[in-house]
Design a protein around this nucleic acid. Sequence first.
DNA 1: AGTGTAGGCCAACATCCGTTGACATATTGA
DNA 2: TCAATATGTCAACGGATGTTGGCCTACACT
Lengths: 195, 195
Amino acid sequence: MTERKPRRSDATRAAILTAARERFAAEGYERATIRAIAADAGIDPTMVMRYYGNKEKLFAAAAEIDIRLPDLTAVPREQVGDRLARHFLDRWEHDETMAALLRAAATNGGAAQRMREMFAHQLVPVVAPIVAEACPDPAQAPARAALVSSQVLGAALCRYVLRLEPFVTMPAGEVTGWLGPTLQRYLTAPDPAAR
Amino acid sequence: MTERKPRRSDATRAAILTAARERFAAEGYERATIRAIAADAGIDPTMVMRYYGNKEKLFAAAAEIDIRLPDLTAVPREQVGDRLARHFLDRWEHDETMAALLRAAATNGGAAQRMREMFAHQLVPVVAPIVAEACPDPAQAPARAALVSSQVLGAALCRYVLRLEPFVTMPAGEVTGWLGPTLQRYLTAPDPAAR
DNA sequence: AGTGTAGGCCAACATCCGTTGACATATTGA
DNA sequence: TCAATATGTCAACGGATGTTGGCCTACACT
């Protein structure tokens, strides 16, 4: 359906994209220069413009992310938090695109917008049915999802962006061991004022 | 002791500093320009250089933060989490300097370093005695403090930087109601693999 | 074989940034 | 009062950045 005649420049396009992801992840939106990205990809800066229009569109292409959340309804309810924590940590550990988006979102409006869309279109729908089981009010889903986001993004911030020492060297299993119950409570605790 | 003869330019210095805080908070380190800061302060960009040396030192001066953590040993152990959550939220809500540092720390190495120092010198010492009560191993204190940081910073990120919708309009009391128990568990849960 | 077109590079423009130095004015101190 | 010093302005430099247009080359198609 969406098949497309392979172009001779596909390799270049891909090289630009991976170089862009690395630079954006390492330096954020404004410090990552098109010239540096082009140099990493081994081509001329002009090519970046030809293929992606401008810097903003390049970033948009480089930061296209699918969180690939699993179907939580198939997971035993009391393991949902742990499962989510593990998924996010694994995702972050193996895809620098996530760090790129996070770094950029702190200063770039477009990136922040992108992050909000990921939240609304990818996290909320997956989380909503789980929340619905523990809480009759369906309007609570976004708030619960936001709490999950805050803990996940905060951990990622400390571990991959700020590189806060105890968090960087902490084994992945220990991190998820701590975050799991937190996410579990955010999703399934019966009451807002849960104690 | 450290008394200092008031200089005639103190007003200008202060104007520069507040303008710098606003700009750094709103746009991050690289997008906040010395020219714009000077314009906000109603003076010439040269003054900024004369009084603060260069942009990096200006940021260092503008982002000097004291978290002003309360003495937690005087708080009933089971209220420590709630107390901490309230303190942080209040602090963030009334001092844009915190947001400035967070935004800048995402892309600026010096700002990130500053954040790590705040963590090590201000949060860890206050939190350590509380952790010691619940956990015999004193080496656990940094890890526990890091977990607290991750949740606090994550919430601040969502609420003040990303402006993730459910989090922005959520009343402060509801936020602390959710975060309190999380922080409480991070500090006083008996075991790393706490369930 | 020959032509159109896509891929690629080079030089340059316009702009903005941090930073510097020279110069004017006001205030302070003896 | 008068010199020294602090406060402030103006113009400009050197460098980096996003972006543009022109030109050359190599492939693709007929």
